[in-house]
Amino acid sequence: MSEQGVDNSKRQFLTTALTVVGAVGTGYIAVPFLSQMQPSTKAKAAGAPVEIDISKLETGQLIRAAWRGKPVWVLNRTPDVLEILASNTDNLADPDSQESNQPTSSQNEFRSIKPEIFIAVGLCTHLGCSPTFRPETAPNDLGPDWKGGFFCPCHGSGFDLAGRVVKGVPAPTNLDVPPHHYITDTLVLIGEDTVEDSA
């Protein structure tokens, strides 16, 4: 067939049609593979922020929740505890929380947004054991310097009631304070910083 017998418009139409069909086919093949790379609904839910209602949290009480598969503690500290926290810094490795993990809004002597409410990830920063809540002062097994706090039975690390690690124990840093903010006075959202922290 000669060059003059070729219909260029038909050739252009067939080329365009095959290109479109090929692109659509590639899309149908690629979508299942790409969707498998996305996190599952269960994984998304596990990392989602968690709301905790603290309206019934009594003074001195500790409640536990879960966020990202980790225990989270919410403690309503007494006025006496707040006084001790402000004065008992000589025995602490990082009293100002310079080497520890917390949102900017919680980097203060109480390690909290509201002084009386302490929120922390309940895992020792040494090897990830869960410390026990020991609010009593100077118990026989922990000695006269113990002013209340969290004691890790795995390797003997101690933390005060602001999650600050005491000197000379295996834990290298203070307990982690998760990102959080208050939705209302009695409803706290764990997993998202305040506007100032995320800016």
Rank of each mutant, 00 (worst) to 15 (best):
N76E: 08
G27M: 14
E109Q: 14
D145M: 11
N140K: 08
V121C: 00
V165N: 12
I113G: 03
I54W: 00
I54K: 03
D80L: 05
E136Y: 11
V74S: 02
T137D: 13
A45R: 02
P153C: 03
G122A: 02
F110K: 02
W73P: 06
S106Q: 12
E196F: 15
T78K: 05
A93H: 12
E51L: 14
P32W: 10
T78G: 01
G156D: 12
G149Q: 04
L175M: 15
S97K: 06
N8K: 13
A43S: 01
F159I: 08
I183M: 00
Q12V: 13
V169T: 15
A17C: 12
D53M: 00
D145C: 09
V50S: 01
K167Y: 11
Q98C: 10
Q61P: 04
A17M: 15
L127A: 07
C124G: 03
T89C: 01
F33Q: 07
E3H: 03
S40K: 03
T184M: 06
G128F: 06
N174Y: 08
G60A: 10
E83M: 07
L187C: 09
I113F: 11
I54T: 04
P115H: 00
N88A: 15
H181Q: 11
S87N: 10
L75K: 02
V74I: 14
G143Q: 11
K70S: 08
V50W: 01
G156K: 08
G25C: 13
P103V: 10
V165T: 13
F118H: 04
G156T: 11
N140Y: 09
V50R: 04
F133H: 09
Q61T: 04
Q98S: 10
D53K: 01
I119W: 04
C152F: 05
P32K: 06
